[in-house]
Amino acid sequence: MDVREKVGRRGARLFKDGMLVNLGIGMPTSLSNYIPEGIKLHFQTENGAIGFGPTPEKGFENPYLTNAGANPLTILPGGCYFDSATSFGLIRGGHVDATVLGVLEVDEKGNLANYMVPGKLVPGMGGAMDLATGSKMVVVVTEHCDKKGNPKILKQCSLPLTAKESVDWILSELALIEVTEDGLVLREIAPNTTIEEVQSKTEATLTIPIEGVKVMEY
């Protein structure tokens, strides 16, 4: 299993039946491949659809039907389209039950930074600030450390924030961490790691709950 599959399998089990869910581009999208049986979700794409299906076969693309990354989509029976004001009304208004986002940094207060590196990368925030601010449950999925091996789960974000104190769960290939008012609580670790290894790769201090840390199941 690669990182995306591990994160996808565990992340998909955070959802409950009937939720309206918005998945970010990249690693977050992988969760849609592993939705457990018996769980039916409504997927939103913020450019204006709920209830989209898999990528169409070549030659069957509708140039008017894409996701927020401009990749072709299909729509399922029961799906619907709407304008951007309605789409962000759903998001900002708390009608989206869960959003899953990638990050550059996340910290122990639940702050997240994922939209710019000053002087280097300024692509714009798109819908990320609204999604992180308005969704009922905000899940961050990430590789536990960056490509240089530095922790991405910090005491305090150094990059400009996408949203303040909004993350509920942090999921990596090593750990599932809950963000609480008292800081980060380590809920689960991957089968091939230890609490000590996870803490050594995390800048923020992880609290070990009284009920113990579970081993992650895929």
Partner: peptide, 12 residues
């Protein structure tokens, strides 16, 4: 009338 996600910002 628009089609699919081609609606987006247009109505506003």
């Amino acid at each position: 009338r628009y089609q699919a996600t081609g609606r987006n910002f247009n109505p506003e």
